[in-house]
Each structure stands twice: as structure tokens, then as C-alpha cells.
Amino acid sequence: MSDRLLTQALCWRVERRDGVMVALTDHDRDLAVDGVSYRAAPGVTPSAVVRAEGLDADTMEVTGALGEGAFRRADLIAGRWDGARVAMLAVDWSDPARGVVPLGEGRIGAVELGADGFTAELRGVQAMLERPVSEATSAACRATLGDARCRVAMAGRRRFARVVAWEGERVTLDRTEPVADAYGEGVLRWFGGANAGLASAVERSDGAVLTLRAPPAFAVAAGTLVAVVEGCDRRLATCAGRFGNVANFRGEPHLPGIDLLTRYPGA
């Protein structure tokens, strides 16, 4: 047993939502485990894994140094690592094929940046139990355009375009919108340039000009390839007039609310 303890190494695999995967280990040399090469990362230090016996969420933290390696300050600020899936395991570094012990998996939660390092919180799958189990009523639709509840076909509502000009939150494309404010409340996904892999929320659109809710994380060069996805303002009138999808509207616009007595003068 003592030999196993002396030759134990911790490995963790991080998979970003844009498909990028990083595999690291606290050992002093790279390890190959189940066909995956785990790179030695002496500057990344995990805390103890807190495992709960009940339904409380498993948590741990990872502290690391910022640099030009796997975790760069600009990428953390841009949100490239937000919600990334993390799987942890322990191996015998003297013979990685002899035995692999899974320690758990989860997703990256809060990230704190310091002067020359970062601390990332890892939340286990039990954290999903903290979400509300039922929805609150609302006048606006609670579905997302094109999801399983909305059921609007999105195949013809995603279009590729190239950036003609960029200034702050305003992005001008080389093609115009199909209908007025078609991309308002939609998404612009970056397929090229420094922002590749990121997505920006669109506040409104007017012809070929899109106004984003926040400026892109990195500078945008003319000719950058993007994909724009139509949006919806979640109002019943829009659902009926533009999409013809009232049967799947997930809101209660006619349900009286707490402001019922103050809606009309003299009430």
C-alpha cells in the first residue's frame, strides 16, 4: 500500500464548450492514460476534494498561475472556460495502465483572478439539484427560440456572414437581415479571428448592422467569419405574427398579476 501512495498522481481533464480539451497532471512528467496525454502542470494546484454523503454538491478549487500556457488571463476574462466540464482521476504514475481511480466530475463555476494567478471553483453534478424544480409564471415566453419546447425549425434561421466594420458594440456584416430586427435577442457566434469559439448576445439589428449587448472580448478584424442566429423578443404577438407558433408559446400573457389594481386610471 505504501508503494501505491508514493506513486500516486492526480490527473484532470477539462473540456471547454467550444470543443477545446486540456489534460493536466500534478506529476513532474507527462502521463498517458487511456489514450489521453496529461501534461505536467506544476503551477496548477488542486485543493482537497470535498465529497458530500447526502445531496449537497461536491466542491473543490484549483489554483494556478497565469501565463501563455493552458490558462491565459484574456481567455478567463472572455469566458472561454466558463461552464467547462472537468473530470478528475488518480493514477499510479509508475504504471498508468495498472489502475485508474475516478474521483468525480463537474463543471467550472466561479473564477477569481489575482495579480499573477487564478482560482477556479469546480462544482459536482449534484449542483444541478440546486436549480428550481418548477417555473414561475411570466407574461413572456420562457422557452428559447428553436429548443425542444419552442419547436421552431432553426435550419433556415442561422446564416454565415463576414464582418465589414466593427466599433464597440456595433458590428456591420456583409449581408442584411431577412426581416426587421431579425437578429434582435439572438446570438452572434465567432468562427474566426481572436474571438473564435465565443458567442455574443445581440441586442437589436437594423439591416446589416448588429448592436451587441457588450463589446467583443477581443478586437475584430474586417473579413472575420461569423454565424448569426435569429432571436425572439418572447412576446405573444411576435410568436403569432412572425413564427406562427402560438401553440408552443410558453408564457401566460393574460394571467392577472400583482399589478392588476394599478393597470387602469382610477382603479
Rank of each mutant, 00 (worst) to 15 (best):
G117A: 10
A70D: 15
A87L: 10
G35P: 01
A139T: 13
A115H: 15
F118R: 00
D34A: 15
S134W: 14
T59Y: 04
R158M: 05
V49D: 00
L129S: 00
I108G: 01
P46F: 03
R51F: 14
W81K: 06
V50A: 11
Y38A: 09
F71R: 01
V44C: 02
A143Q: 03
A52G: 07
L113D: 08
G79C: 00
R142N: 07
I108K: 02
R123H: 09
G146A: 09
D147L: 03
L129F: 08
R162L: 00
A97T: 15
V91E: 06
A57L: 09
L145P: 00
T63G: 12
V36Y: 02
E105T: 07
G43Y: 04
V152G: 05
S37R: 15
L113Y: 13
F71N: 03
V163H: 02
V111H: 03
A115W: 15
R151F: 07
E68Y: 14
V125F: 07
D34W: 06
W166V: 01
P42N: 08
Y38L: 11
L89Q: 09
D75M: 07
A110R: 13
L76A: 02
D75Y: 02
A70P: 13
G117F: 05
L55Q: 04
A115T: 15
E169Q: 06
P132M: 12
A52W: 07
P46N: 00
V133C: 07
A65Q: 13
R149M: 13
V49L: 06
E61F: 08
W81N: 05
M154G: 14
F160I: 13
M128S: 14
G99T: 11
L145E: 00
A74R: 12
T45E: 07
D147T: 06
V86Y: 04
W81F: 01
A90S: 11
G35L: 01
R123K: 09
G117W: 11
V91Q: 04
V49W: 09
A153D: 15
R162C: 09
L76F: 02
A155Q: 12
T45G: 02
A155H: 11
A40L: 01
D34Y: 09
T144D: 04
T119I: 12
I77Y: 13
M88H: 03
R80T: 07
R85T: 12
G156F: 14
D82L: 11
R131S: 11
S94D: 10
E53Q: 05
G99R: 08
A70K: 12
V152A: 01
R151A: 11
D92K: 10
R142C: 05
